[in-house]
């Protein structure tokens, strides 16, 4: 069954500062969509609006989970996660004093995910053998790359239909960035997910994205219907490639 996400005409901000203006985007079932833009353009705020962490002042956000549509604005973060939307936040937000295994078990807190705990755990350990080796270690004592893997795996333990990832590459060495991006693709296929990924590393994100949006100063500046369209866009050249 198909799961998709639609953001329509969303305005949002913090106090007097307006961060998003009339933002619309859609992620169709089974797609990987990249939300591109440099720091401070509103990528994270949009992610937080979808997850109910920041409340938009206008617009609508609709998620269709396995054929049923839900309006997300007004729902609490935990209710949104419970629908089947998982979020890997910026900074990963692991539980540093809990072990790797305990972090993964907490990922399966959602009632629907509890029955599938063992199966999803096996899958995560298969995809990330490193996590299996370190399952007793405290999450806070692992390296940045390992923490990013754990954050991804923990989000998948909730058996989501839609996965949102905020800046998976931040703070990682170049080699780890491309490895993380590859893993996202692998997990997306393994779990049959719909993915929205915010990323400032254009070249890496575009490797696995079906489509993409470029966000500049809180507005969608360009909508690329394919990876090539994004690659050949003047705006991208201006913002990323400095040409």
């Amino acid at each position: 069954m198909a799961s998709s996400l639609t953001v329509a005409n969303v305005d949002a901000g913090y106090a007097a500062v307006r961060v998003l203006e009339d933002v619309s985007l859609r992620v169709d079932a089974g797609e990987t969509v990249a939300l591109l833009g440099t720091n401070g353009n509103g990528k994270s705020t949009l992610m937080k609006c979808i997850m109910g962490i920041v409340r938009p002042s206008a617009g609508s956000i609709t998620a269709t989970i396995d054929g049923t549509a839900h309006e997300l604005i007004g729902l609490s973060t935990e209710a949104i996660v419970d629908l089947g939307i998982a979020f890997v936040p910026e900074g990963r937000r692991l539980f540093p004093k809990q072990s790797v295994l305990e972090n993964l078990q907490l990922g399966a807190y959602r009632p629907k995910a509890r029955a599938e705990l063992q199966r999803n755990l096996d899958f995560c350990f298969e995809t990330f053998p490193r996590l299996k080796e370190r399952k007793g270690q405290l999450a806070g004592s692992m390296s940045g790359g390992e923490q990013q893997m754990l954050a991804l795996a923990r989000a998948l333990m909730s058996a989501p239909r839609i996965l949102l990832i905020d800046e998976p590459s931040v703070g990682l060495a170049p080699l780890l960035v491309s490895r993380t991006i590859d893993k996202i693709k692998e997990l997306k296929e393994g779990f049959d997910l719909t993915v929205l990924m915010a990323e400032q590393n254009f070249t890496q994100a575009i490797r696995i994205a079906d489509r993409g949006y470029v966000i500049v100063h809180g507005r969608i500046a360009f909508e690329g219907e394919s990876a090539e369209a994004l690659n050949n866009n003047d705006l991208i050249r201006e913002f990323y490639l400095g040409a």
Partner: peptide, 22 residues
């Protein structure tokens, strides 16, 4: 599951919300 959430609640409340727990 409840017990594990109790052990984690003081470490990061937003992260716990992202696990679908209040």
């Amino acid at each position: 599951f409840l017990g594990r959430a109790i052990q984690a609640v003081a470490q990061d409340q937003l992260a716990l919300r992202l696990m679908a727990a209040n």
